[in-house]
Write a protein that binds this DNA or RNA. Sequence first.
DNA 1: CCGCTTTTTTGACAAATGTCAAGTGTGCCC
DNA 2: GGGCACACTTGACATTTGTCAAAAAAGCGG
Lengths: 187, 187
Amino acid sequence: MQQLFEQIGNYHRLSPEAAEAVSLGFERITLPKNECLVTEGKVCRHLYFLEKGALRGYYQEDGKEITHWFGFENDFVTSFHSFITGQPSVENIQLLEGSILWGIAKERLNELLNQYHEIERLVRIAYEKYYIRLEERFVNAHFKTATDRYEDLLEHAPHIVERVPLGYIASYLGISPETLSRVRGRL
Amino acid sequence: MQQLFEQIGNYHRLSPEAAEAVSLGFERITLPKNECLVTEGKVCRHLYFLEKGALRGYYQEDGKEITHWFGFENDFVTSFHSFITGQPSVENIQLLEGSILWGIAKERLNELLNQYHEIERLVRIAYEKYYIRLEERFVNAHFKTATDRYEDLLEHAPHIVERVPLGYIASYLGISPETLSRVRGRL
DNA sequence: CCGCTTTTTTGACAAATGTCAAGTGTGCCC
DNA sequence: GGGCACACTTGACATTTGTCAAAAAAGCGG
């Protein structure tokens, strides 16, 4: 839980009472590799902090699994679309390694948001940072060849290549596994 | 300004005092077509509400202008990366039509966020919705052929095709103008 | 309304990528 | 440690897309 508060401290410092309230809201979750944290078709009502491990978010399209994001230590993860809208999730979140997470129910989080302006600020700042991270990722993929995308990945997120199967990486980059293999062969 | 409050009302209802404070923070801006609202190299310290008109966000890459988003009526627009981080913007925002916007300085907005928990909530909810809109857009572009992308655009945002030059649309879709032309010819 | 500029389309060709199938390498479980 | 399943690579071919250049169409300003 200390790691969670370190990460929270990167966004916005909380008063002791707010920090205490936050700590009471989270529960520790341990899951093995391949287990799913979120499954499509169900409403996602929890937000998670990933203390240790790795995971991927994927959805089905034309009978294929499309991986579109990964999460690693210190990330806040959830099926954001479902969490925010309250609609059933179209994506699944699957553990790529045995992992330790801390989860908080949306209901509980809403209570904290109601009670503490500073927690509302914390969450707003977190959304700002997640928004621009997503925007950066989008811009970095726009108009890029397969080679560009893989090279960008190696430069900005080499840990992904070390921890994630290449098939999922190809999917994440929006290219076929064969193409990724050929790109790797040329580097 | 009524339109601004209607849009704000879609996110979160404000008390009369908060609404009054918000209305005092915004200023009306009228700009002609082709004018730039934001230019690269400068820190963007304003958030804008687009009451009437259209605009695009673009950046330079290898001597080319890459358009990566459009804004229309009722959108909140800014160079989010620069606005949030305080770093110089890498993108430009250019009016595609003569437009009417309402702008608020970041400093003023921060004062409002400090004073009113409900305004903090409003902004958090706005960020949530913008985050999932960006995520949807990303997912809708992932692994898509040029034809798929254009068809998706026609289906989900036909107004873009009506109001934006095709060259910018091609750029936005991540394909060349020639390819867009060929795709259109096949439909 | 005309001339000029900009936008869009078209042709030809090269490069990149996807698909399908098969082969090789790696990892896991018994 | 071996066998099997899974992950990754390779080959061949088809399709898509980009690039360059040129032509056609559309829009704007005087």
